[in-house]
Design a protein around this nucleic acid. Structure first.
Length: 619
DNA sequence: CTTCCCTTCCG
DNA sequence: GGAAGGGAA
């Protein structure tokens, strides 16, 4: 594959062993240098650390860079040099760092192409015939490629950005940036977004446009959340699949696949939730507010295990992103220090009038409710029978009654919490008496299995032809949310032994298939090895290679000597599972309740924890 | 201009 | 549930 704009070849490889594939490419091309960009999930950290070691040992000059974040996670610390544990403090620090984020780099003028004639390259197929139909539909929300990303960015900055603060609560999506898939797949750099947006902010500030200025702050906050997701992943590698705080360890989740199915199909009886779930299915995209609504409903009203919901998001979202989504679900579930209080249930009816005051969003995605007046659109179950008839609605027939009443959900939540405290107290007692060792491991270490038999192919768009019904049955490929913990624990055991080869590759994250990347190498092809071979050349561009991180030797001293940034060579602190000591205060480690109470002592200000304490006492 | 109350928002 | 901001007194 020839990258025309750069005049050099792109070699693509599928492999179960990235490091040896890289080595093979390096050898067959005679490359002497390797450049890659950092990733921050535990698998990549381990894999890339190894890649750096192995290739360096083979005499290749390896350098790695930050291309995904405004600041490297290890550069953002509090006054004591410790990582932040709440988003607010983290982001405040990011915005007041002594140096600005790197300005975006221009593309290189040219790259001196190496000799790739002896290097075998796999052909990657990004879309086959059977996928075209559903991909065409998904394309309504996203057109891949860096030039589309650029256009999306420009359109947003010159359009909706200035009114972002005013419009951000509207479920109708034309007011958001649509950048998330482009950012995820590396088609636009977050630094470019940051700088262009800041330029606008300065402009508006000079004009005295307060609303515009505030809009930029709010938009940047969502960029900040993305940053924070990587930050959390780096500092708490377990948090991608385990609750960060352990206070819900004994929560009796409702394991009900019918609830789960109703949620997926958008048949919960709550119009805002259902509209969201159908938009998600049809377009692979949801407004952030609506993601919170459906996820919160999932966790608080249905009380299903949040990892199920996270996996469904993973399977359906175009911008599915492990770090961001894990952060989001933990936030919703109240397992972050600054997450939502667990015992508060949001009422979809009220949220409906907040985010969709005129019911337009609901009518668009739930055509069966289209003729219902706005007064009842978010709570049809209260509507007079005559009115329902006139609107052609038969509750329980062509639109469901609420699957769970809000009051019933509140009562059930309280019951579940009492149960949880009982179990917790029992466990504590058992541990203190030494009669039983950590029975608690059952819930966290072995999360409730994802239902195996879900048949997504059978889901059809409900009555009506708006949105269009997909003509192609969607192929359901099980892209499991990668299970990191098990392999990760093995890393802990084996970190010192030399061969980490298998673990990093076996359980690696899958990424969505239908990604068209024929325009430019992007980091988004995260898990296929994509290497661009480059002859010795010091004017090297920061090309987004698909690899990342992990430099053992040169790093710790320098980077912990704080604020000096490393422009070149991508200095990364030594990272290994056992050295990520910050996790100790969280439950990610084996100690569960005990661990989170030591966290409690350190962070008495955390109202979420306070809540938990209060509840524990009253329960 | 201050104070107090009410709404809104909360990563 | 609590801070914080806006509006009324």
């Amino acid at each position: 594959m020839r990258v025309q704009s750069l005049g050099t070849c792109l070699i693509t490889k599928r492999s179960t062993d990235s490091v040896s594939s890289l080595l093979e490419v390096v050898k067959s091309t005679g490359a002497t240098q390797l450049f890659f960009n950092h990733l921050y999930d535990p698998l990549s950290l381990v894999r890339d650390h190894r890649a750096k070691q192995v290739l360096t040992a083979h005499g290749v000059a390896v350098r790695s860079f930050n291309a995904d974040l405004l600041y490297e996670p290890w550069d953002v610390n509090d006054a004591e040099g410790c990582p932040f544990t709440t988003f607010g403090a983290f982001w405040e620090r990011c915005l007041s760092m002594p140096y600005d984020p790197e300005a975006p780099l221009l593309p290189p003028k040219r790259i001196i192409s190496g000799d790739v004639s002896r290097c075998p390259s796999d052909t990657l197929v990004f879309e086959d015939e059977s996928e075209k139909g559903s991909n065409a539909l998904l394309a309504r929300a996203w057109s891949p490629g860096w030039s589309n990303a650029d256009r999306t960015l420009t359109t947003f900055i010159n359009g909706p950005l200035i009114e972002y603060s005013k419009n951000r609560r509207k479920a109708d999506s034309a007011t958001t940036s649509f950048l998330s898939p482009h950012l995820h797949f590396g088609e636009v750099s977050v630094r470019k977004v940051f700088h262009l947006v800041r330029i606008k902010q300065v402009l508006w500030a000079n004009e005295g446009n307060k609303a515009g200025e505030e809009s930029v702050n709010l938009f940047l906050k969502s960029i900040g959340l993305r940053e924070y997701s990587r930050y959390m992943s780096f500092n708490h590698p377990h948090s991608l699949e385990r609750p960060l705080l352990g206070h819900l360890k004994f929560f009796p989740w409702v394991v009900d696949e019918d609830y789960f199915k109703a949620w997926r199909q958008g048949r919960t009886g709550y119009p805002l939730v259902d509209a969201g779930m159908r938009e998600l299915w049809a377009t692979g995209w949801l407004h952030d507010r609506i993601r919170v609504v459906v996820a919160s409903f999932f966790v608080k009203v249905l009380q299903l295990p949040w990892r199920w919901g996270m996996k469904y998001f993973w399977d359906t979202l175009l911008d599915a992103d492990l770090e961001s989504d894990a952060l989001g679900w933990q936030y919703i579930s109240g397992t972050l220090p600054d997450g939502r209080e667990f015992d508060r249930i949001d009422n979809p009816q009220f949220e409906g009038y907040k985010f969709d005051p005129n019911g337009e969003y609901v009518r668009r995605w739930l055509p069966e409710l289209a003729r219902l007046p706005t007064e009842w659109i978010h709570h049809p179950w209260d509507a007079p029978e005559s009115l329902l008839q006139a609107a052609g609605i038969e509750l329980g027939s062509n639109y469901p009654l609420p699957i769970v009443g809000i009051n019933a959900a509140k009562a059930r939540l309280q019951e579940a919490l009492s149960k949880m405290w009982q179990l917790e107290a029992a466990s504590r007692a058992a541990i203190e008496n030494g009669t039983e060792e950590g029975l608690g491991d059952s819930s966290e270490s072995a999360p409730i299995a994802f239902p195996q038999d879900i048949q997504m192919e059978e889901i059809r768009e409900p009555v009506g032809n708006n949105p269009p019904i997909p003509t192609t049955i969607r192929r359901y490929e099980d892209q499991m949310v990668p299970s990191i913990t098990s392999s990760f624990l093995r890393v802990e055991e084996e970190e010192t032994s030399s061969d980490l080869r298998n673990l990093a590759d076996e359980s690696r994250a899958e990424v969505p298939r239908n990604v068209n990347i024929n325009q430019e190498p992007g980091q988004g092809i995260l898990n296929q090895v994509i290497t661009q071979t480059i002859q010795t050349n010091n004017t090297l561009p920061q090309i987004n290679l698909a690899m990342a991180v992990g430099n053992a030797e040169d790093s710790t001293a320098e980077s912990s000597s704080s604020s000096r940034r490393e422009r070149d060579g991508g200095v990364v602190p030594v990272w290994s599972p056992s050295s990520s000591s910050y996790s100790e205060q969280f439950v990610g480690d084996e100690n569960g309740v005990g661990a989170s109470s030591s966290y409690l002592q350190r962070h008495p200000q955390s109202h979420q924890i306070m809540n938990w304490k209060r509840l524990s006492q009253t329960g």
